[in-house]
Simulated scan of single mutants.
Amino acid sequence: MPYHKNKQQAFQAAQQGAAQAENVFQQLEKDGSDYGIQLSHLKEEVNEAYEQINNALEVASETQRETLEQYRRDLARIVDEVNIEEQ
């Protein structure tokens, strides 16, 4: 059973990381004076979420794997949107 617990914990960490990155992205104030600081924080959150997702994928069930891949797509969308806005 410890294996199952680790699998669930890894999945939950990835879930929380993706949600946190999405939250920081939603609060990003593009016209704010501290946009650069916010953007740096967002990049840290996204990188951490990617790492958590990759860790979870190593032990994920098939159902979890599908959800984790969706989290990856969501993070890629955030990165794309921020990169477009920076140009």
Results as ranks from 00 to 15, higher is better:
L57H: 00
P2Q: 07
A18K: 07
P2M: 09
A19P: 03
E22S: 15
E45M: 14
N54F: 00
D34S: 12
K7H: 04
E58F: 04
Q8E: 09
Q64V: 05
A56N: 08
K43S: 06
A19K: 07
E62F: 04
E22C: 05
N6K: 12
R72C: 06
N55Q: 08
D31G: 07
H4D: 12
S33C: 03
Q20K: 09
S33Q: 09
R72Q: 14
M1A: 11
A56S: 09
E22T: 15
L39H: 10
A21I: 02
E51S: 00
Q27R: 05
F11K: 15
Q9R: 14
G17W: 03
E29A: 08
S61T: 13
K5Q: 15
A13V: 06
Q8V: 02
H4S: 12
A10Q: 03
R73H: 13
Q8Y: 01
A14M: 05
N23E: 09
Q9S: 08
G32E: 05
T63A: 07
Q64K: 10
V24N: 07
A14I: 06
D74L: 10
T63D: 05
A21C: 03
G36D: 13
E48K: 14
A56W: 03
T63P: 00
L39D: 12
F11N: 14
R65E: 06
V46G: 01
F11V: 14
A49H: 09
V59W: 00
Q64T: 12
Y35R: 14
Q8A: 02
Y71A: 12
G17D: 02
V46N: 00
N55H: 04
A14S: 11
Q38I: 08
F11Q: 15
I37Q: 14
K30V: 06
R65P: 02
E29M: 03
F25V: 01
V46F: 02
A49S: 14
Q16N: 11
E51G: 00
I37C: 04
E48D: 07
L39A: 15
K43N: 06
A21D: 01
F11S: 13
E62M: 10
T67M: 11
V59P: 04
A60F: 01
S33E: 11
E29G: 01
A49R: 15
S40D: 11
H4N: 14
Q16F: 04
D31K: 13
